[in-house]
Design a protein around this nucleic acid. Structure first.
Lengths: 338, 338
DNA sequence: TTGAAAGCGCTAACAT
DNA sequence: ATGTTAGCGCTTTCAA
């Protein structure tokens, strides 16, 4: 083709003409209405095939006031999204749940789009509903959006009193408790943690779970450094911990990526895992099992979280009753790092 | 909100009424037409703000016959997309180029969607154009789509005679030559390669570049094993190479992920990099620099590829003349693995 | 079971 | 500079 205009797309009207029926009938066939006689269906379908007709989305959604699309809003940078296995799994789960439905997915990555553009997109009738992953502080724009569009949040809101309507979350608190308890049970006595950002609920909850277990065990929970969930930040935090107390014998990282970063800092210091320092991560991402040594971690059902979010949203859109909160269980996966 | 219906969205008509002008004028203001008097613009904008009006996409695109959206089609599995730094960079580049424009991006991941659904989506007037990443064999469905929709392919078609209209590619052949020549120049004499899939152009071109240099240098290019660009496949291939000839002293991996896999196989065999075996990768992905030892590799301008693809497509959509092929240069980045 | 007709909310000539 | 008037391609009552 030369430049712009695209080969003339066949319209419903053309199909109707060719099949010798009305546009309404063609529409019924296209939408699988039961009240069309089989022979007519047959004729129409042949016309559709012959013309290679594909319904126009805009027209359809304008008329029906539905878009058959849902948005997945990710308030993160592109590179984070594409390098964090959690998002990969989440998207996979969403895709899985949507595969059976007629909905298509539109991914909106905040850093590229800007939140105002995103808001306009969501409110401009582009989608029938939205999934918001990684609910940050101050994401009031989206809590706001949920007033006029079905929205399901992944992860609880930072402020628990801010009751966002529908959320699917993972039991971060309990997961962190499992991790910390495991370290205590292993007989470790100087246990540190590389916590996540405290403006993100998982960061908060995982630190809280850790702290409560240590205190219950009569151990000091003072060895805390913070990272941003990236491997590099994990390495940096680990170095600081080692500086602060070279005698520490265990560390709980708030996610696997930071745990992997910690591995390298530990190696740099000439120490071994788990000989000198036991390491436990969180997420059970795809790198956890293949790390050297394989990482003990808390399994987070990321794929299920995606499917659950999508399923919840679709039900919401279709007017079903759904529980406002779904909490998915976490469990400890013991490997060789602890 | 209770379930479905979404708060009644204000229409252009309501804005017009409130501002005391016609719908056409409101439309002009919304679309930034220059021929509206400043005072009217002011009044209209106040009405828009007051009503919190957001234009309806479907209506707009139906009337204007444009969608202001472009699709990025990725014929790969979700997990590959989210774990391959190349895609991350590509998407980033696309996002970057699109950030300045009014186009939004819609990602279609083949494995989730199915290629027929994708085709319908593209042809159903959902987008003004499409970007197809990772052009595989038999992707005739898309060459096909380009008949009725502007399409820019990332990577040349497998069969060079199949002249797909617009492509942006990286100079894989030359990159591989640089890598191989570097190894030769370093005095390595038994040089192997972990090639990529031969049904993908980069796999083919990188192997071809490698082979031609070795032959020119009078060396045997028989030590070839194939992987699928994943780290695991790189490790497996490396093990096979070592079995075939334990005396090999260099290996060129067709991408960094496989090179990293090779690292572990080399370590398993009790050998060192680059002491025993020099390793060169391809892509210069984010793991290359932080690997131990830092990986010598061929820099592939992935981000630029994304921006270039997007820019090309936008020009195409807007009816500009664009060159059918853009070839981006590669360069060698020497680090410590060779 | 099928068709006719009235829009969905907006843009784009064409007038003025 | 602004308004009028047709649709864009489809769904959806309402009648037949």
């Amino acid at each position: 083709m030369t430049g712009v205009p695209a080969g003339q797309a066949p319209t419903l009207e053309m199909v109707a003409a060719r099949a010798g029926v009305s546009r309404a009938t063609v529409s019924r066939v296209v939408n699988g209405s039961p009240k069309v006689s089989p022979d007519v269906v047959e004729v129409v379908q042949q016309a559709i095939a012959a013309l290679n007709y594909v319904p126009n989305r805009a027209a359809r959604s304008l008329a029906s006031r539905r878009t058959q699309a849902i948005a997945l809003v990710v308030p993160e940078s592109t590179s984070r999204v594409f390098n964090d296995p959690f998002f990969a799994a989440l998207v996979q789960g969403v895709g899985l749940a949507l595969a059976n439905t007629e909905y298509t997915l539109s991914m909106l990555i905040e850093s590229e789009t800007g939140s105002e553009k995103t808001r306009r997109y969501l409110l401009g009738g582009n989608v029938d509903g939205a999934l918001v992953a990684s609910h940050h502080t101050g994401d009031h724009s989206y809590a706001n959006v949920s007033l006029s569009l079905p929205v399901v949040f992944g992860g609880r809101p930072l402020d628990p009193t801010e009751s966002v309507n529908y959320t699917v979350d993972v039991d971060n608190l309990h997961g962190a408790e499992l991790a910390a308890q495991h370290l205590v049970d292993r007989g470790r006595s100087r246990i540190a943690t590389i916590a996540g950002p405290q403006d993100m609920p998982p960061g908060v909850d995982r630190l809280r779970g850790f702290t409560s277990v240590l205190e219950r065990a009569g151990l000091s929970a003072d060895l805390v450094e913070f990272g941003d969930f990236s491997p590099a930040s994990g390495a940096t935090a680990m170095r600081r911990l080692l500086e602060r107390d070279a005698s520490l014998d265990a560390v709980f990282a708030a996610n696997d990526q930071m745990a992997i970063g910690a591995y390298s800092a530990i190696a740099e210091a000439g120490l071994t895992v788990p000989g000198d320092i036991a390491v436990v991560g969180f997420d059970d991402d795809r790198y956890a099992a293949t790390a050297m040594p394989p990482l003990t971690t808390v399994h987070q059902p990321s794929i299920e979280m995606g499917t659950e979010m999508a399923r919840t949203l679709v039900r919401l859109i279709e007017g079903d009753d759904v529980p406002p909160t779904t909490l998915l269980p976490t469990k400890l996966v013991v490997r060789q790092s602890s």
